[in-house]
Design a binder for these strands. Structure first.
Lengths: 100, 100
DNA sequence: ATTTAATACCTTGTTCAACAAAGTACTAAA
DNA sequence: TTTAGTACTTTGTTGAACAAGGTATTAAAT
């Protein structure tokens, strides 16, 4: 019911611009959301296999080439549903909290 | 990181008034948060064993006696931390979403 | 050339919240 | 003394997230 928040965050990040894993981890960290590599990589692979994400190789001047991930159309649709589910969840909590 | 939202909801409900499981399920449902018995009962027992909740038996006119659960002082402290964690999470999502 | 350090990516095994699908026990009315 | 309704419990499963490793590539240092 409320699993997949990390996935939601990652799709949200990639909705703005393509990024490679270290970029994503850095953005999550800036938002005070600590996620480790062992969580991120399998998640990216899973979403790629489901057709939500795709990637392209990009050469780096400071090391090995990087996998830049970006949202597919299917990924944007999935994100739209997650936006809705997240809004529902926030509303649910508010409902519970504001009840007298 | 973001597990335990059901637990958060239940403690929030019990922070207002004591309740027995069916009451809790009804309140969750009103807030559009579907939780099943198989989730609720073990969770109540777990939190009771951790000292966050306690219960008292109350006779019912329509069936067997009920376990009315209520928050302990330790439970209120735990809830305060969850309030903070939830606020952090909402803030994190907003941060990610509002970035240009 | 060869080692070292940094970067990038990947894998295996574990944990535990939540769920599914049962079951048991008690109460009251038929 | 069944039947139906309510209340509570248990066992097994799933899967997101984590912990703790590993391999591969690149560039700089030796």
């Amino acid at each position: 019911m409320r699993k997949g928040l990390v996935e939601y965050c990652i799709l949200s990040i990639l909705a703005r611009k393509e990024a490679y894993p270290s970029d994503i981890l850095a953005e999550l960290k800036e938002a005070d959301m600590i996620v480790v590599e062992g969580t991120l990589y399998p998640l990216l692979i899973r979403d790629k296999n489901q057709g939500l994400l795709a990637y392209r190789w990009v050469e780096s001047t400071q090391g090995p080439p990087r996998k830049y991930y970006y949202l597919t159309e299917k990924g944007r649709e999935a994100l739209a549903e997650m936006d809705s589910a997240w809004a529902d969840m926030v509303r649910s909590i508010e409902t519970l909290k504001n009840r007298q």
